[in-house]
Design a protein around this nucleic acid. Structure first.
Lengths: 216, 216
DNA sequence: TGTGCTTTGTATCACACTGTATAAATAATC
DNA sequence: GATTATTTATACAGTGTGATACAAAGCACA
């Protein structure tokens, strides 16, 4: 009764708001920092000030998934981090495929930030005959026609789109057809995806374009 | 009376929700596509289906800034694009400074997507003595101590942070001190910034970490 | 063991955002 | 020119998200 380790108390009973899910990785990140700083306990107050949000917000977010804290004390850093990682599915590694091996794709596959976070780029694809067959950062570049096959063989769950804008939608369609349910899109467009497929866009220009509003 | 060209009808009277501002660049993007496809008129219905949102949402968003459409007809593509660009401050070019000239910084300054959108990277900085003084993609890399001076001289309004995580906060502080009000941050942390400074984060790992929740 | 202090978890409230519905305005057609 | 189609702008309602407030629970220390 005192150990609140039933991580899926409520999480599967009703849907957790998307915004909450997007905040959880932020909590994990701060917890990791705290942990490596040798702290054993953290309060919602401390978490909140670090992330510039109210303590109540954090407590409410966490309460969607269970009761992780101790009143009068706070949250056990290691325990909470472990719980959140499990909730997010970060207690394992995930395989990803990159499609588009131009300048951007090369930057992505050689970015050293993915692997330590448990994201493994295990296949690379392109359409151009000039690039297919080459080896880039240790990855043998395959034709996009091999996508479905590789997704199955290599247990790829995540697609990363780094093709030019005019091929992006068809690549995304191909990924969906291949059974990929999570897509990270670097192309500057708003793609159409069916229900059940999660998309995230990486779009620095879009970010800049909304900031200039506050500059005038 | 029939020409609703008073672009700041309401916009300055009360604050426009942040989410609305972030959607405006999406509208601009679709309008540009429509324009180059030769279309002269677009309805909120068409815009909405392209962006997977309801027509009413779009009409409401636009109504924060004025009345741009004609009932029974829709929106004049060229006119609406021009209006939205003006609202967002995209009817001019903006100068940006990149701090951090490692792998990521080099990728950013050589990314060909900024200039066509009116974002001009006009200065590059680093702390390392190995890099300061070099010329990368036509930019002479300066010491970070030159930041404030360059910001004034070159009319730099935007800062782009591409340093490793352990230097990111101090770089951001330096930018704020130099008078920069808009910061695009590529470092994987949630930085502390004072009121009045707008921050956007580019963080693919964070995006991946929230997608895996839906994969389990 | 009891008292005071801290912090959580949640009930309640307030507000912001989204979707529905409709009147007004325009265009098209006969 | 009258009638019908269309589409905007907006009033209204509903939903969802964030902040406030407080009771319950644990800790510390005498």
């Amino acid at each position: 009764m005192t150990t609140p380790n039933n991580s899926d108390n409520l999480s599967s009973e009703f849907p957790v708001p998307e915004v909450v899910i997007q905040r959880l990785p932020l909590y994990v990140r701060v917890l990791t920092q705290y942990s490596s700083a040798g702290e054993e306990v953290i309060s919602s107050e401390q978490l909140g000030s670090r992330l510039q949000m109210t303590p109540a917000q954090i407590r409410k977010d966490l309460s969607y998934f269970g009761r992780f804290g101790k009143q009068g004390r706070g949250y056990d850093v290691a325990m909470l981090e472990r719980q959140l990682r499990e909730i997010l599915g970060l207690d394992r590694t995930w395989n990803a495929a990159v499609v588009g091996m131009g300048r951007l794709g090369r930057a992505v596959v050689s970015y050293p930030g993915f692997a330590p976070s448990g994201f493994n780029i295990s296949a690379a694809f392109d359409t151009s005959h000039d690039i297919v067959g080459k080896t880039i950062s240790g990855l043998h570049v395959q034709s996009i026609s091999q996508l479905t096959e590789s997704v199955k063989e290599l247990d790829i769950k995540i697609g990363i789109v780094t093709v030019p804008i005019d091929h992006a939608q068809e690549v995304i369609d191909a990924m969906v057809l291949a059974g990929i349910k999570s897509i990270l899109n670097y192309a500057p467009l708003s793609p159409q995806v069916p229900e059940g497929v999660t998309m995230r866009g990486i779009d620095p220009v879009l970010s800049l374009q909304s900031m200039t509003y506050y500059l005038r």
